[in-house]
Write a protein that binds this DNA or RNA. Sequence first.
DNA 1: CATGTTGCATGACGACCATCATCTATCAGA
DNA 2: TCTGATAGATGATGGTCGTCATGCAACATG
Lengths: 199, 199
Amino acid sequence: MRVSRVKALENREQILETAARLLRKHGFEGIGVADIMKAAGLTHGGFYRNFASKDDLAVKASERAIANTTALLKNGLAQKPKDPLRALIEGYVSSAHRDDPGSGCILPALAVDAARSDDPALRAVFITAIQGYLDQIAKLPSANPGAAGSRHPAAILSEMVGAVILSRVIADDPLAESLIAAVVADIAGPSPENKSAEE
Amino acid sequence: MRVSRVKALENREQILETAARLLRKHGFEGIGVADIMKAAGLTHGGFYRNFASKDDLAVKASERAIANTTALLKNGLAQKPKDPLRALIEGYVSSAHRDDPGSGCILPALAVDAARSDDPALRAVFITAIQGYLDQIAKLPSANPGAAGSRHPAAILSEMVGAVILSRVIADDPLAESLIAAVVADIAGPSPENKSAEE
DNA sequence: CATGTTGCATGACGACCATCATCTATCAGA
DNA sequence: TCTGATAGATGATGGTCGTCATGCAACATG
């Protein structure tokens, strides 16, 4: 079953995108090569012509996932230049992000799996991702020049990641919504529409 | 190979403690029943006389892990009644906790695995654990009655959990230490010994 | 148009896994 | 002391997994 070169490239793309989604959803050990290939519309046979191993796929798919979400992030922030920190947090710490790990940030989805791995290449990908987030947050104009002061980017990122993970555990429990609301307010301050009621 | 009743109880305890440690270290899918039993000094044969399934063990071992760490927590806090929030954070967001997931809090270790699970019993255990932490934090005398104000417990817990997870990813990188320091200072304020240099 | 090349399907292999059946040696109660 | 009960060892089973060998059909080059 040979296929044209452009089709072969499309297939590889499809494998990468599918893997990026399924690995985030099920974890590195929660889904197998055969299932990923099947979801990509192929059989498991051609896998090792595209990737050296499942670990190799994990690295490439993680890089792809990061690239996709950072692109989304930049687009989202560019459209809301007024309060970028709030825009970031409201998108990140949200029920939509909680309910769709397959197309969300890799940190709440896979950081724990990466921490358990002893593959240096995989860890490097995640370290770079963390650094990227920290740099992005540091560049954000401090949205809270007042009482709360401007916090260290590592503190903000930790809170974002932890909030998404905890909200995924409690998921359908009403507690999840209040947790999300509390964290958004904690980082970005009280929501603008309620601001007049403050002080 | 029958064994006395007290010995049988000891064995069950040993399985639980070993499982609580190894599951936190490797994740629910990262270690098997046979390896847990071997580490507990037994063979895999007697497992199903003690537990209904591996999922059942995951529930019981998670409960055990929570009981152990909350006991440690209460002891630690009782010995430092001056600034309990700081004591909590300095113990939780620390390189010691980062480097030993096997005897640490289950939330950074296993919450992601629990979120992926569809076992209601397992999820219930983790929801209870989160609630317990939130209640404990809420009861803590607000250590920052000043500028930073008293934050929502969910915000503090999210930051704690996220910080430990991220620090485990970057582990040996020097970035890990600065992340820990930044988060501790963010939650508990500047460390007391440096306090005179503040303001 | 001819032919060597190659992407992918089929299928198999060995390792590992959760689970269970069976056996046996020892304990606990009479 | 005798005997039924049982904790745990041994071993097997069916399933899943990552990985690879082989074969084929279609492409790209001449």
